[in-house]
Design a binder for these strands. Structure first.
Lengths: 139, 139
DNA sequence: AAAATTTATCATATAATCATGATGTTAGCA
DNA sequence: TGCTAACATCATGATTATATGATAAATTTT
């Protein structure tokens, strides 16, 4: 499960930036090297996060990317959402009409699980990632 | 969330076949018409389910697809698994090394949610879909 | 003002997913 | 045997996701 690779990179990049926040703006090249991820593609990804209000970018020497909000105010949902397909529906079987009003056969049962996942992304913050025991960290 | 469209079609197709099991084998053309899904692509999908032991196909007149097992013995996981990317890992951020031994920063927290999703697919059966109130059914 | 550093963007390439149309293969039946 | 109904498969195309390389634009430093 089940994030696409762009969203996964976004999470890892934001985490890296948060970890290095003390040193000022973090350059794309540093993030890319750390994640072993293609530079220009990552640049596009970070730019998308800037448009989404998650990161702030500054150009020129000493430039780079910074978090807009403190880590405990940054839910993972905000990092991940810009990379989800546009009008994604929640129906397990992809029925266009499915919803609380016209539920498909599995709607209610699936809703409980789907809500659990959404809650995870809404209530887990970047601060939760930073709090982890450093011994179990890997880049 | 967030099955790819092939897996969604597979679920809908299996459900349709289960609903029409009494009439004998169900033809691809009937399933395709009911789902408004491309015939040949669906054929490939159903064939994959046959290879996976979920469906049995018979050719020639009066042929079509049937469930191999009764609906209450058919977990959604079996229907969906053939259409998941091959060696999918469970790490939220896609780290190759992440696991119970070398957990990433979010591993334990995410594991609880991921397990809930896996349990849903393992323990929900096609029979659960058939049991639904017919008034709330839509094809 | 010029040079250096850094993000932004464009054009293009590659791979995977999704889809279509044509043709092959199997099985029942007259 | 030959016809027909049905699944199986092949060749190809379209779309989207992922990636690369070149260039533009902005900012700081000298």
């Amino acid at each position: 499960m089940w994030l696409n690779s762009t969203a996964q990179n976004a999470l890892r990049a934001v985490l890296y930036i948060a970890e290095h926040a003390a040193d000022g703006p973090v350059r794309v090249d540093d993030v890319a090297a750390s994640l072993d991820s293609p530079r220009n593609y990552l640049s596009k990804t970070l730019h998308a996060l800037a448009r989404a209000g998650v990161l702030r970018s500054t150009r020129g020497p000493k430039g780079g990317f910074q978090l807009v909000d403190p880590p405990d105010r940054l839910a993972l949902a905000r990092v991940v959402r810009p990379f989800e397909p546009a009008g994604e529906r929640r129906c397990l079987m992809g029925r266009a009409t499915c919803g609380d009003a016209h539920p498909c056969q599995i709607h209610h049962r699936w809703s409980r699980t789907a809500t659990a996942v959404e809650d995870f992304f809404d209530h887990t913050t970047v601060a939760d990632l930073l709090r982890q025991d450093r011994r179990s960290r890997s880049t």
